[in-house]
Design a protein around this nucleic acid. Sequence first.
RNA 1: GCCCGGGUAGCUCAGUGGUAGAGCAGCGCACUCGUAAUGCGCAGGUCAGGGGUUCAAAUCCCCUCUCGGGCUCCA
Length: 673
Amino acid sequence: MPEPTIEVELPDGSRKVLAAGSTGADLAAAIGRRLAKDAVVVEVEGELVDLSRPLPDGAKVRVVVAGSDEGRQVLRHSTAHVLAQAVCALFPGARYAIGPPIADGFYYDFELPGGARFHDEDLPRIEQAMRAIVAEDQPFERAEHSVADGLEIFAAQPFKREIIEGVGALGAGDVDPELAAEAGPVVTTYRNSGSFVDLCRGPHVASTSRLGHFTLTRVAGAYWRGDEHRPQLQRIYGTAWESEEALAAHLHRLAEAERRDHRKLGAELDLFSFPDEIGSGLAVFHPKGGLVRRVMEEYSRTRHEQAGYDFVSTPHITKSQLFETSGHLDWFAEGMFPPMELDGGERYYLKPMNCPFHILIYRSRQRSYRELPMRLFEFGTVYRYEKSGVVHGLTRVRGLTQDDAHIFCARTEMREELASLLDFVLDLLGAFGLEDFYLELSTRPAGKAVGSDEEWEEATEALRSVAVAKSLDLVLDDGGGAFYGPKISVQVRDAIGRTWQMSTIQLDFQLPQRFGLEYVGADNARHRPIMIHRALFGSIERFFGVLVEHYAGAFPTWLAPVQARVLPVRDDHDASAQVLLAQLRDAGLRADCEGASEPLGARIRRGKLEKVPYLLVVGDDDVASGTVGVNVRGSDAPERGVEVAHLVARIAADAASRAVTPPIAGVDEAARA
RNA sequence: GCCCGGGUAGCUCAGUGGUAGAGCAGCGCACUCGUAAUGCGCAGGUCAGGGGUUCAAAUCCCCUCUCGGGCUCCA
């Protein structure tokens, strides 16, 4: 009589016959040795389960390997368990809360007895304890329990009990789905030693020896369930990967991000600073940073002018009434600086937004449909009272300048306006070398929202169809829009793959209503315009910071504060150097000259560190033959004997082209990438 | 705002109760040089600010400001 068997279906449609009771591990082994080694969990009918669980007959299965996104999540989750086990061993009485995998790693939240805190010095010994657990090859043993048993097991773990109680209340409808998901419909636990058991839905790797390519990175405070009114826990972050190479690559990426940090480069390249005397989150731009900023603004102005915008200017402070009418004082007050009170009791606020001012310009007289769409643009400097803990370099500040515009249009014009606007946005970002985008569309929130169904539907659909037409990835943030209108935001991937939210396009059905905006239509009746808020850079400060990081401080020639620097080899080449300098400047280029008070090598070095696109050397040969030695940024060898007029034209062409990197003679773009 | 860790010369940092230091940058002098650091010298600090403990505080304690890493939020 044959042994009983089961049959499973693999992702390629093929079928595999296995002995009854075979597990995911058995399946992987049956397919191949390499797969058996790489397997961490198995997907059964769309659900990830432990390798040790028997496979059901007839199931669709897929072996998940360590190097996949899902595999890494499992590794990280399991590593988090080991972290909790190590902490519980080293800090008796520690309570453990949750420890999920996150992008690139994991964390685990703890409450230490007596309100004790982790310190950086604790990380190495915790890591050592984790490595000991890994070396012991402890199996992760899954078990299922009733809610009552779960509460019993975790009698001394209030956070676990709270999660279990959430599971017990499933069906009551008011359970945080994330917490419920942590445990599943029944209470499952994973035990990997006599002393350590954790509440967890799983799955996990088979045993701790599967782990090991991890490191703990930092300690931080975090609120239980992210709620600042609940206890603050101690969080330990770590990163974990499938191999030493992957871990090393990740650590290298972190180092690269640090090298590009705009705060560091901002000081090194003398671009901007944050003087303590002024206050947190308030930047000053130095001459070189100010220059880059001015070029950005000038380019933006030109483009807005071409796109049919009108330029306006509005004050930085206003009486409180304006923000009462707009509603900002109702829902944005804590994001605003406190008011200045005048003798008469009148209160003035610094503006956190420009919209109400632009609205007043619209409303300054009766408007005709012939004037629409009216596009009012301003580099508007606004002030927002960010909480002290959140300010961060130029990306999160308290004083910022938006490239802000408000478009007032008829509903019939809305679709076309949005379409051209998205084109404009992507084209402008592209001009700054940001080419890799995806879009996020935030739609109508459930419950009350301002504006008619038709307006919402039409606007959302317009945004969606325009995005689809651009064949960009569109991430739906369903119900994530504000109550006053749908929104599309442009997420940009930078040179090292990080994403930043830059531009936003926001429909607003509310403010036209609150301010009673109207226009007279062709039908001689009054109509309410629709309002679009939009910022392309978002904030100039943030955009500037992102550009610094994107280019690692090496701005394209058209943006570079110093585009070319002339270096005479000796003092007696100075006259020729000055002639060259004048020619460069006559060509509209930003150039300077550094005389021979230091050796040429030192001046070359400084120019390279300052990331000047063109370093031009003038020596005996050049004086004699009207040439120059050219060092193009990014090239490892200088070009000698380049004819001056040709060189000037070449740099001017590079600047005018707004190319991302200066062209190097004899090297095409593809070869440099 | 809350938690953890910082703040010493322009920058990067050493100095843990007993006379404030180094490298780089700056300034001066010399060097006049062909592609990533020329040499010598000088100057530079209320050790973030304030209060306290002590014979004595950069160092120990308290408060404030500020920076970094997080939580939360967002442009």
